[in-house]
Design a protein around this nucleic acid. Structure first.
Lengths: 221, 221
DNA sequence: TAATATTTGCACCGATCGTTGCAATCTTCC
DNA sequence: GGAAGATTGCAACGATCGGTGCAAATATTA
């Protein structure tokens, strides 16, 4: 049986702490972010943090878990909102992609800076904790997206053998240039074009096609 | 005119230092990697490091520049070796992808850990230095890959409007699952399947097609 | 109001780290 | 062999940081 830790301290203080910690962890990274700075950011005494969390490590884990949950919820919501009732698949996917990328510049932006911190120290993080995060975060959204794609394919518009992999491909294609050119994240036109290009490649890549021997089945006519 | 800094100290010591620094920066990150540890790893006195570099920051920059150059050279080499003479496009692309991913587990692996460090502190890095790295590193390989794809498309096998973007798509699709499941990097079968799936999506996505109105041009027949 | 839980400020410990100065030793090259 | 330069070990400084103990102050609840 897992020990049930009774919550100690006032909940609003705890929220303030995790919020401030998220800000500073995201901006400065785990090591650089000092507890004094976090306390200041949270409008809380240094000593109070240790009243809610035993460790800096435990604080980080709590922040991570909280943020992951919130972002995953948002992502799943976006998936449900754009990919349940499909009118025009291409424009729906583009809208979905834009909403998806919009999260990166929303108030949840710090989360992704946090992800980069995780990624940098990935060799030093206990695999169990890492897998737990992977599961409740990107894993969940990818699963949700895969399910939507499966249903769309089921209705005969796409050819998808492995929905999970297709979901991965779609997510990557949508945010393609993002990795090489972060400036475009705030350029509405470039953003739309990038997403449209990614969606286009995805749609052609998974277009319904007759199953015959070679690849020629798709580029024929 | 940019100041020419005359090299100080013995070149082999300098190489030993940058090599050791790469190892530790990659493993522990910029902040965690101590200069004493770096000195020990390099088989060199702490004090000697300050004879070659003024700062920890300058040392890091030198390491970064060196490593980026070497990896970019390797990448360009792989591109040239696999994508110059095309026999069977699909199998050539798969071989290319496997060689590409092979670099991630080669002796150049520390470089990518270093990249993750960069990515984590991306907000704290002077944009000029960042752009310089972007240009001589991934930018260069993407450019080279784009050129190869352009030539391939020119010979009528693919339809590529924007070679640079296509190159980006190909690179992402090849290493798709890599981001979600790092364990598969050492599983030969899973790796091959992942690359094959990515290449397949890419080939369908950019398959030669007759230019007509709708998307139906590709999924017909 | 009284009892209890929580927060706060402050001083402090121990450890790590970047950096420097210095004098001694070793290498390189003429 | 000797001069110039490079390397080394060592000690030390100043700063930062995680974490703790303690007693006073504040808020919560009965």
């Amino acid at each position: 049986m897992t020990e049930r830790k009774k919550p100690v301290g006032q909940p609003d203080k705890r929220r303030a702490i995790t919020a401030g910690a998220l800000t500073l962890f995201a901006r400065d990274g785990y090591t650089r972010a000092g507890l004094d700075a976090i306390a200041a950011e949270a409008g809380v005494s240094n000593r109070t943090i240790y009243n809610h969390f035993t460790d800096k490590a435990e604080l980080f884990q709590a922040v991570m878990q909280e943020s992951t949950q919130r972002v995953a919820d948002t992502m799943v919501d976006i998936i449900d909102r754009h990919l349940t009732k499909i009118i025009d698949l291409e424009s729906d996917l583009i809208d979905f992609g834009l909403a998806w990328l919009g999260v990166l510049t929303s108030d949840l932006a710090p989360h992704f800076a946090l992800i980069r911190q995780i990624n940098a120290e990935i060799e030093h993080i206990p695999p169990a904790a890492l897998q737990l995060w992977q599961q409740t975060g990107p894993g969940r959204t990818r699963c949700e997206l895969a399910e939507r794609l499966r249903r769309i394919a089921e209705r005969g518009v796409l050819t998808i053998d492995d929905p999970a992999r297709a979901a991965g491909h779609l997510m990557l294609l949508i945010s393609a240039d993002n990795l090489t050119d972060r400036a475009d994240l705030h350029n509405e036109n470039a953003l739309r074009e990038m997403v449209a290009a990614g969606v286009s490649t995805f749609l052609y890549g998974y277009a319904k096609r007759t199953v015959v021997g070679g690849r020629d089945a798709a580029d024929g006519a």
